[in-house]
Amino acid sequence: STVKVRLGHLEVTLHNVSEEDVRELRELWKNGADEEDLRRWLEEWKK
């Protein structure tokens, strides 16, 4: 499914993403990950 995730002022649209992935991303964000960390996660996730 396609999910729009809003993290601060960063809005990311993920395609074919699982609930688990979204949860993981939100956890990262809650734990103080900055945009760099999130971008890195997204790069990994896209592979």
Rank of each mutant, 00 (worst) to 15 (best):
T13K: 03
E20V: 09
D37A: 15
E27C: 14
V5W: 01
G8E: 03
A33E: 04
V12E: 03
T2W: 10
W29N: 03
E44C: 13
E20T: 10
E11G: 03
G32A: 05
K30H: 08
V3T: 04
E36C: 09
E35I: 12
K4S: 10
N31S: 13
V5P: 00
W41F: 04
E19M: 10
K4V: 15
V22N: 02
K4W: 02
V17L: 10
G8V: 03
G32Q: 05
K4P: 02
N31T: 10
R26T: 11
W41Y: 02
R23K: 13
D37P: 03
E20M: 09
G32C: 05
K46V: 13
T2A: 05
K4D: 03
V22Q: 09
L38Q: 01
W45T: 03
H9K: 15
D37H: 11
W29C: 03
E44W: 13
N16K: 05
R39P: 01
R39W: 14
E20Y: 06
V22L: 15
S18V: 03
V12N: 01
S1G: 08
G32I: 03
L7S: 02
R40F: 06
L10I: 14
L25Y: 03
E36K: 12
W41S: 00
K46D: 06
L10S: 08
L10R: 07
E24Q: 15
E24P: 02
E19L: 09
E19K: 08
L7G: 01
R40H: 08
R6Q: 12
S1R: 13
E27A: 09
L28R: 04
R26H: 14
E44H: 14
D37C: 08
R39Y: 11
L14Q: 00
E36W: 07
R23N: 14
V22K: 06
W45G: 02
D34M: 08
W45K: 09
H15N: 07
S1P: 05
T2K: 07
T2I: 10
L42V: 15
L14V: 05
E11Q: 09
S18D: 05
K47F: 08
N31A: 10
D21L: 11
G8D: 04
L14C: 04
V5Y: 01
T13S: 05
S18Y: 04
L42T: 03
L7W: 09
E24N: 12
W45H: 09
L10E: 13
H9S: 15
T2N: 05
G8P: 04
E35K: 05
G32V: 03
L28A: 02
R6N: 07
R26C: 08
W45F: 09
A33H: 04
H9I: 11
R26N: 11
K47Y: 07
D34Q: 10
H15P: 03
W45M: 05
D34I: 07
S1L: 15
V22R: 06
E36R: 09
W41D: 00
E19S: 09
E44P: 01
E20D: 13
D37M: 15
E11I: 13
E27P: 00
H15A: 05
D21M: 13
L25P: 00
K30D: 07
V3S: 02
A33F: 06
E11L: 12
H9C: 11
L25V: 03
K30E: 06
E11S: 12
E35M: 08
W41E: 00
E20L: 07
